[in-house]
Amino acid sequence: MTAALSLRKVTKSFGPTEIIRGVDLEIATGERHAIIGPNGAGKTTLFNLISGRFHISSGEILLNGERIDALPPHQINRRGLSRSFQITSIFHNLSVFENLRCALLWSAGYRYSFWNPLGRQRELNDHAGRLLEDLNLTARRDTRAGLLSYADQRALEVGMTIAGGASVILLDEPTAGMSNTETDYAMELIRRVTVGKTLVMVEHDMKVVFDLADRITVLVYGQIIASGPPAEVRASRAVQEAYLGADFSAQAASEVAA
């Protein structure tokens, strides 16, 4: 079976600085994969490379067995890979409902249509309505997205990321800046809306990582130093030394991250 996402010898340099230094990674279909690592390790850059926001310097990236590393972001998205951003990225002057509807348009086949009145597209509008309910944002339906609370904006961002039905979802620190309650709620939401999808997430909260991930990859200075099931990564001496210090444990890690 082909992997949902494969990275082969991927490198990325900005000028003379090599940020990603030869990453090989296979993520199986349906897997929940967490990428962790200290600040500046290149986690977000890796996401930007996979999603097409930046182009790689060398190597290959494959989505369901097909090369995507030379494609622009919108085409990668159309092939079934969707991402969220560390810094909330929504359409702030549009209503919550419009945000979700925009996120659905392409996958619903509307393309650049200027002849379908949106108000009459019952199936599309029902779908956006169901998403609102899934995200628990129905009461905020007509609120301008820019005026939502931070946690609601993060929820909306996750909603827009999964709306189009992408099979591979990249979430960049979905719980960053959230309180503990909010984090619990967000993780519950993410778990619920990504059932059956391949999930790759960058996350600092170790509790979240060890709770949710099937496999964990540790990235340090643009290289993978460990990749495997949580127990294996937890036990890895390289990880303990390079990343979190010698007396590494899940508890200590969550404290460091918090």
Binding site: I90, C102, W106
Partner: peptide
């Protein structure tokens, strides 16, 4: 940028 990541 977000528009790109919803397929447009």
């Amino acid at each position: 940028e977000r528009a790109q990541f919803v397929g447009y």
